[in-house]
Protein backbone atom coordinates (compact mmCIF):
# COMPACT_ATOMS: atom_id res chain seq x y z
CA UNK A 1 0.00 0.00 0.00
CA UNK A 2 2.64 2.48 1.02
CA UNK A 3 4.98 1.45 -1.75
CA UNK A 4 2.48 2.24 -4.43
CA UNK A 5 1.97 5.65 -2.91
CA UNK A 6 5.67 6.29 -3.01
CA UNK A 7 6.56 5.02 -6.43
CA UNK A 8 3.71 6.19 -8.60
CA UNK A 9 4.63 9.86 -8.99
CA UNK A 10 8.36 9.23 -8.90
CA UNK A 11 8.22 6.78 -11.77
CA UNK A 12 6.19 9.01 -14.00
CA UNK A 13 8.41 12.04 -14.07
CA UNK A 14 11.72 10.75 -15.47
CA UNK A 15 10.20 8.19 -17.81
CA UNK A 16 9.96 10.36 -20.90
CA UNK A 17 13.51 11.65 -21.15
CA UNK A 18 15.56 8.44 -20.80
CA UNK A 19 13.12 6.63 -23.06
CA UNK A 20 13.78 8.91 -25.99
CA UNK A 21 17.48 9.02 -25.14
CA UNK A 22 17.81 5.29 -24.98
CA UNK A 23 16.33 4.84 -28.40
CA UNK A 24 19.48 6.44 -29.81
CA UNK A 25 21.84 4.21 -27.88
CA UNK A 26 22.68 0.84 -29.37
CA UNK A 27 20.35 -1.86 -28.08
CA UNK A 28 21.71 -5.31 -27.26
CA UNK A 29 20.94 -6.44 -30.80
CA UNK A 30 23.11 -3.73 -32.32
CA UNK A 31 25.80 -4.39 -29.76
CA UNK A 32 25.86 -8.01 -30.93
CA UNK A 33 25.93 -6.94 -34.58
CA UNK A 34 28.81 -4.57 -33.84
CA UNK A 35 30.71 -7.35 -32.08
CA UNK A 36 30.18 -9.65 -35.06
CA UNK A 37 31.48 -7.04 -37.52
CA UNK A 38 34.54 -6.38 -35.35
CA UNK A 39 35.23 -10.11 -35.09
CA UNK A 40 34.94 -10.71 -38.83
CA UNK A 41 37.10 -7.72 -39.74
CA UNK A 42 39.75 -8.58 -37.16
CA UNK A 43 39.86 -12.16 -38.38
CA UNK A 44 40.02 -11.08 -42.01
CA UNK A 45 43.12 -9.05 -41.13
CA UNK A 46 44.88 -11.30 -38.68
CA UNK A 47 43.80 -14.87 -39.42
CA UNK A 48 45.37 -16.32 -42.56
CA UNK A 49 42.86 -17.69 -45.06
CA UNK A 50 39.88 -16.56 -42.91
CA UNK A 51 38.49 -14.25 -45.58
CA UNK A 52 38.46 -16.91 -48.28
CA UNK A 53 35.11 -17.77 -49.88
CA UNK A 54 35.35 -21.42 -48.97
CA UNK A 55 35.99 -20.60 -45.34
CA UNK A 56 33.09 -18.18 -45.12
CA UNK A 57 30.76 -20.78 -46.63
CA UNK A 58 32.19 -23.19 -44.12
CA UNK A 59 31.26 -20.89 -41.24
CA UNK A 60 27.68 -20.68 -42.52
CA UNK A 61 27.52 -24.42 -43.03
CA UNK A 62 28.78 -25.09 -39.53
CA UNK A 63 26.41 -22.60 -37.94
CA UNK A 64 23.22 -23.76 -39.64
CA UNK A 65 22.35 -26.52 -37.15
CA UNK A 66 22.99 -24.23 -34.18
CA UNK A 67 20.75 -21.60 -35.79
CA UNK A 68 17.95 -24.14 -36.19
CA UNK A 69 18.06 -25.18 -32.54
CA UNK A 70 18.59 -21.59 -31.37
CA UNK A 71 15.55 -20.26 -33.25
CA UNK A 72 13.36 -22.74 -31.38
CA UNK A 73 15.18 -21.87 -28.18
CA UNK A 74 14.45 -18.17 -28.75
CA UNK A 75 10.72 -18.86 -28.86
CA UNK A 76 10.92 -21.01 -25.73
CA UNK A 77 13.00 -18.46 -23.83
CA UNK A 78 10.62 -15.67 -24.90
CA UNK A 79 7.88 -17.46 -22.93
CA UNK A 80 10.17 -17.49 -19.90
CA UNK A 81 11.09 -21.16 -20.34
CA UNK A 82 14.14 -23.15 -21.43
CA UNK A 83 14.59 -26.31 -23.49
CA UNK A 84 17.56 -28.44 -22.47
CA UNK A 85 16.40 -31.42 -24.52
CA UNK A 86 17.33 -30.16 -28.02
CA UNK A 87 20.57 -32.15 -28.30
CA UNK A 88 18.90 -35.41 -27.33
CA UNK A 89 16.01 -34.66 -29.69
CA UNK A 90 18.58 -34.29 -32.48
CA UNK A 91 20.00 -37.70 -31.65
CA UNK A 92 16.53 -39.26 -31.59
CA UNK A 93 15.63 -37.79 -34.98
CA UNK A 94 18.92 -39.01 -36.47
CA UNK A 95 18.41 -42.51 -35.06
CA UNK A 96 14.81 -42.83 -36.23
CA UNK A 97 15.75 -41.69 -39.75
CA UNK A 98 18.76 -44.01 -39.93
CA UNK A 99 16.81 -47.16 -39.05
CA UNK A 100 13.85 -46.29 -41.29
CA UNK A 101 15.71 -45.08 -44.38
CA UNK A 102 15.59 -48.49 -46.02
CA UNK A 103 11.81 -48.17 -46.13
CA UNK A 104 11.87 -44.88 -47.99
CA UNK A 105 13.43 -41.45 -47.56
CA UNK A 106 10.19 -39.51 -47.15
CA UNK A 107 8.79 -41.92 -44.58
CA UNK A 108 12.03 -41.83 -42.59
CA UNK A 109 12.20 -38.03 -42.55
CA UNK A 110 8.54 -37.62 -41.60
CA UNK A 111 8.80 -40.23 -38.84
CA UNK A 112 11.97 -38.66 -37.47
CA UNK A 113 10.43 -35.17 -37.37
CA UNK A 114 7.22 -36.55 -35.85
CA UNK A 115 9.21 -38.14 -33.01
CA UNK A 116 11.14 -34.91 -32.47
CA UNK A 117 7.93 -32.86 -32.36
CA UNK A 118 6.32 -35.38 -30.04
CA UNK A 119 9.12 -34.98 -27.52
CA UNK A 120 8.52 -31.22 -27.70
CA UNK A 121 4.80 -31.76 -27.13
CA UNK A 122 5.58 -33.89 -24.08
CA UNK A 123 7.80 -31.11 -22.73
CA UNK A 124 5.11 -28.53 -23.43
CA UNK A 125 2.32 -30.56 -21.87
CA UNK A 126 4.21 -31.18 -18.65
CA UNK A 127 5.19 -27.52 -18.42
CA UNK A 128 1.92 -25.88 -19.47
CA UNK A 129 -0.69 -28.10 -17.87
CA UNK A 130 1.12 -29.81 -15.01
CA UNK A 131 3.11 -26.69 -14.08
CA UNK A 132 6.42 -28.50 -13.72
CA UNK A 133 9.43 -26.20 -14.09
CA UNK A 134 10.81 -26.10 -17.65
CA UNK A 135 14.37 -26.76 -16.54
CA UNK A 136 13.33 -29.92 -14.71
CA UNK A 137 11.09 -31.26 -17.47
CA UNK A 138 13.58 -30.70 -20.26
CA UNK A 139 16.45 -32.02 -18.15
CA UNK A 140 14.44 -35.23 -17.87
CA UNK A 141 13.85 -35.39 -21.63
CA UNK A 142 17.52 -34.55 -22.19
CA UNK A 143 18.47 -37.68 -20.26
CA UNK A 144 15.65 -39.89 -21.54
CA UNK A 145 16.02 -38.74 -25.16
CA UNK A 146 19.66 -39.74 -25.30
CA UNK A 147 18.70 -43.17 -23.99
CA UNK A 148 15.83 -43.55 -26.45
CA UNK A 149 18.12 -42.60 -29.33
CA UNK A 150 20.54 -45.37 -28.35
CA UNK A 151 17.75 -47.92 -28.03
CA UNK A 152 16.38 -47.02 -31.44
CA UNK A 153 19.78 -47.32 -33.11
CA UNK A 154 20.19 -50.94 -32.05
CA UNK A 155 21.67 -50.25 -28.60
CA UNK A 156 23.92 -47.39 -29.58
CA UNK A 157 25.53 -48.87 -32.65
CA UNK A 158 26.75 -46.53 -35.33
CA UNK A 159 24.07 -46.89 -38.03
CA UNK A 160 25.57 -45.93 -41.38
CA UNK A 161 23.45 -44.11 -43.92
CA UNK A 162 23.79 -44.49 -47.67
CA UNK A 163 20.50 -43.09 -48.96
CA UNK A 164 21.55 -40.58 -51.69
CA UNK A 165 18.50 -38.34 -51.36
CA UNK A 166 18.94 -38.11 -47.57
CA UNK A 167 22.62 -37.28 -48.02
CA UNK A 168 21.60 -34.08 -49.83
CA UNK A 169 20.42 -32.61 -46.49
CA UNK A 170 23.90 -32.31 -45.05
CA UNK A 171 26.10 -32.47 -48.12
CA UNK A 172 24.02 -31.09 -50.99
CA UNK A 173 24.36 -27.69 -52.63
CA UNK A 174 21.94 -25.45 -54.50
CA UNK A 175 24.37 -23.57 -56.70
CA UNK A 176 27.05 -22.33 -54.29
CA UNK A 177 24.72 -22.50 -51.27
CA UNK A 178 24.71 -25.56 -49.01
CA UNK A 179 21.20 -27.03 -48.65
CA UNK A 180 21.41 -26.88 -44.85
CA UNK A 181 22.08 -23.14 -44.98
CA UNK A 182 18.90 -22.73 -47.02
CA UNK A 183 16.95 -24.79 -44.51
CA UNK A 184 18.24 -22.67 -41.62
CA UNK A 185 17.39 -19.49 -43.53
CA UNK A 186 13.88 -20.77 -44.17
CA UNK A 187 13.44 -21.52 -40.44
CA UNK A 188 14.62 -18.03 -39.56
CA UNK A 189 12.20 -16.49 -42.07
CA UNK A 190 9.25 -18.49 -40.77
CA UNK A 191 10.07 -17.64 -37.14
CA UNK A 192 10.39 -13.94 -38.01
CA UNK A 193 7.03 -14.03 -39.76
CA UNK A 194 5.35 -15.86 -36.86
CA UNK A 195 6.72 -13.46 -34.29
CA UNK A 196 5.92 -10.30 -36.21
CA UNK A 197 2.72 -10.99 -38.07
CA UNK A 198 0.62 -13.58 -36.30
CA UNK A 199 -1.36 -13.56 -33.06
CA UNK A 200 0.83 -16.47 -31.96
CA UNK A 201 3.86 -14.16 -31.94
CA UNK A 202 2.09 -11.65 -29.68
CA UNK A 203 0.92 -14.46 -27.43
CA UNK A 204 4.47 -15.78 -27.01
CA UNK A 205 5.70 -12.37 -25.83
CA UNK A 206 2.62 -11.74 -23.68
CA UNK A 207 2.83 -15.15 -21.99
CA UNK A 208 6.49 -14.55 -21.24
CA UNK A 209 6.10 -10.90 -20.23
CA UNK A 210 3.21 -11.23 -17.79
CA UNK A 211 1.39 -14.58 -17.74
CA UNK A 212 -1.33 -13.42 -15.32
CA UNK A 213 -2.21 -10.40 -17.43
CA UNK A 214 -2.02 -12.45 -20.63
CA UNK A 215 -4.49 -14.97 -19.25
CA UNK A 216 -6.94 -12.25 -18.24
CA UNK A 217 -6.67 -10.78 -21.74
CA UNK A 218 -7.80 -14.09 -23.21
CA UNK A 219 -4.39 -15.25 -24.38
CA UNK A 220 -4.35 -19.07 -24.63
CA UNK A 221 -1.26 -19.34 -22.43
CA UNK A 222 -1.07 -23.16 -22.11
CA UNK A 223 -1.55 -23.69 -25.85
CA UNK A 224 1.09 -21.08 -26.64
CA UNK A 225 3.61 -22.72 -24.33
CA UNK A 226 2.83 -26.12 -25.78
CA UNK A 227 3.40 -24.76 -29.28
CA UNK A 228 6.82 -23.23 -28.61
CA UNK A 229 8.16 -26.47 -27.15
CA UNK A 230 6.73 -28.43 -30.08
CA UNK A 231 8.40 -25.96 -32.46
CA UNK A 232 11.68 -26.29 -30.58
CA UNK A 233 11.45 -30.08 -30.89
CA UNK A 234 10.69 -29.92 -34.60
CA UNK A 235 13.58 -27.56 -35.32
CA UNK A 236 15.96 -29.68 -33.26
CA UNK A 237 14.74 -32.70 -35.23
CA UNK A 238 15.62 -30.99 -38.51
CA UNK A 239 19.04 -30.13 -37.13
CA UNK A 240 19.50 -33.76 -36.08
CA UNK A 241 18.74 -35.00 -39.60
CA UNK A 242 21.25 -32.54 -41.06
CA UNK A 243 24.00 -33.71 -38.69
CA UNK A 244 23.24 -37.39 -39.39
CA UNK A 245 23.37 -36.66 -43.11
CA UNK A 246 26.64 -34.75 -42.72
CA UNK A 247 28.19 -37.64 -40.78
CA UNK A 248 26.72 -40.28 -43.05
CA UNK A 249 25.66 -42.12 -39.92
CA UNK A 250 23.50 -41.95 -36.82
CA UNK A 251 25.74 -41.78 -33.80
CA UNK A 252 23.23 -41.81 -30.97
CA UNK A 253 25.80 -41.04 -28.31
CA UNK A 254 27.35 -38.03 -30.05
CA UNK A 255 24.83 -36.25 -32.27
CA UNK A 256 23.67 -33.00 -30.74
CA UNK A 257 25.88 -33.27 -27.70
CA UNK A 258 26.01 -29.92 -25.84
CA UNK A 259 23.76 -28.43 -28.49
CA UNK A 260 21.46 -27.03 -25.78
CA UNK A 261 24.36 -25.00 -24.44
CA UNK A 262 25.36 -23.66 -27.86
CA UNK A 263 21.76 -22.75 -28.61
CA UNK A 264 21.23 -20.99 -25.27
CA UNK A 265 24.54 -19.16 -25.72
CA UNK A 266 23.47 -17.94 -29.18
CA UNK A 267 20.13 -16.70 -27.81
CA UNK A 268 21.71 -14.91 -24.87
CA UNK A 269 24.58 -13.37 -26.83
CA UNK A 270 22.01 -12.25 -29.39
CA UNK A 271 20.12 -10.20 -26.86
CA UNK A 272 17.02 -12.20 -25.88
CA UNK A 273 16.55 -11.89 -22.13
CA UNK A 274 16.29 -15.16 -20.19
CA UNK A 275 13.51 -13.62 -18.12
CA UNK A 276 11.08 -13.88 -21.03
CA UNK A 277 8.79 -11.40 -22.72
CA UNK A 278 11.26 -10.39 -25.39
CA UNK A 279 12.65 -12.13 -28.45
CA UNK A 280 14.96 -11.21 -31.29
CA UNK A 281 15.39 -13.86 -33.97
CA UNK A 282 17.89 -11.71 -35.89
CA UNK A 283 19.87 -11.27 -32.68
CA UNK A 284 19.93 -15.04 -32.19
CA UNK A 285 21.33 -15.55 -35.69
CA UNK A 286 24.01 -12.94 -34.98
CA UNK A 287 24.74 -14.61 -31.63
CA UNK A 288 25.17 -18.00 -33.30
CA UNK A 289 27.47 -16.44 -35.93
CA UNK A 290 29.61 -14.78 -33.24
CA UNK A 291 30.13 -18.07 -31.45
CA UNK A 292 30.89 -19.87 -34.73
CA UNK A 293 33.35 -17.25 -36.00
CA UNK A 294 35.25 -17.50 -32.73
CA UNK A 295 35.33 -21.29 -32.87
CA UNK A 296 36.46 -21.31 -36.52
CA UNK A 297 39.16 -18.69 -36.11
CA UNK A 298 40.55 -20.36 -33.00
CA UNK A 299 40.67 -23.58 -34.92
CA UNK A 300 42.53 -21.90 -37.77
CA UNK A 301 44.92 -20.13 -35.39
CA UNK A 302 45.58 -23.47 -33.70
CA UNK A 303 44.48 -22.14 -30.30
CA UNK A 304 44.13 -25.05 -27.90
CA UNK A 305 40.51 -26.23 -27.52
CA UNK A 306 40.55 -25.66 -23.76
CA UNK A 307 41.40 -21.99 -24.25
CA UNK A 308 38.67 -21.52 -26.80
CA UNK A 309 36.12 -22.82 -24.28
CA UNK A 310 37.33 -20.33 -21.69
CA UNK A 311 36.97 -17.46 -24.17
CA UNK A 312 33.51 -18.63 -25.21
CA UNK A 313 32.48 -18.53 -21.57
CA UNK A 314 33.90 -15.04 -21.16
CA UNK A 315 31.95 -13.80 -24.19
CA UNK A 316 28.69 -15.18 -22.83
CA UNK A 317 29.28 -13.51 -19.48
CA UNK A 318 30.04 -10.17 -21.11
CA UNK A 319 26.91 -10.43 -23.25
CA UNK A 320 24.72 -11.13 -20.24
CA UNK A 321 26.38 -8.34 -18.29
CA UNK A 322 25.68 -5.83 -21.06
CA UNK A 323 22.03 -6.85 -21.09
CA UNK A 324 21.44 -6.71 -17.34
CA UNK A 325 18.28 -4.83 -16.50
CA UNK A 326 18.98 -1.16 -16.17
CA UNK A 327 17.12 1.05 -13.74
CA UNK A 328 14.92 3.63 -15.39
Amino acid sequence: MAQSLGLEPARRAPAAAPASLRRHLPGPQYAALGALVVLVVANAVFTPHFASTSNLWNVLLQVSTVVLAAVGMTLVIATGGIDLSVGSVMACAGAVAAVLLERGTVLAVIAALAVATLIGVVNGTLIATMRVQPIVVTLATLIAGRGIAQVISHDGELVTISDPAFMQLGRGYAGPVPVQVLIALAAVAVALFLLRSTPFGRYVLAAGGNPAAARLAGVPVPRTIMTVYAASGLLAGIAGLIVASRLGASDAAKIGQNMELDAIAAVVVGGTALSGGRATIVGTVIGALIMQVIATSFNMLLVPYAWSLALKAAIILVAVYLQRPRRV
Partner: peptide
Protein backbone atom coordinates in the same frame (compact mmCIF):
# COMPACT_ATOMS: atom_id res chain seq x y z
CA UNK B 1 0.98 -3.88 -12.89
CA UNK B 2 0.51 -7.53 -11.95
CA UNK B 3 -2.56 -8.37 -14.00
CA UNK B 4 -2.95 -5.67 -16.60
CA UNK B 5 0.00 -4.47 -18.59
CA UNK B 6 2.55 -6.57 -20.46
CA UNK B 7 5.40 -4.24 -19.53
CA UNK B 8 7.86 -4.97 -22.34
CA UNK B 9 5.29 -4.70 -25.12
CA UNK B 10 4.24 -1.49 -26.85
CA UNK B 11 1.00 0.42 -26.44
CA UNK B 12 -0.12 -0.98 -29.80
CA UNK B 13 0.44 -4.57 -28.75
CA UNK B 14 -1.04 -4.11 -25.28
CA UNK B 15 -4.08 -2.36 -26.64
CA UNK B 16 -4.91 -4.97 -29.27
CA UNK B 17 -4.00 -8.08 -27.24
CA UNK B 18 -7.58 -9.19 -26.62
CA UNK B 19 -8.76 -8.13 -30.09
CA UNK B 20 -6.12 -10.02 -32.09
CA UNK B 21 -8.57 -12.70 -33.27
CA UNK B 22 -10.72 -9.89 -34.73
CA UNK B 23 -7.76 -8.41 -36.59
CA UNK B 24 -6.54 -11.67 -38.06
Amino acid sequence: KAEGIIPELSIRENLTLAALPLLT
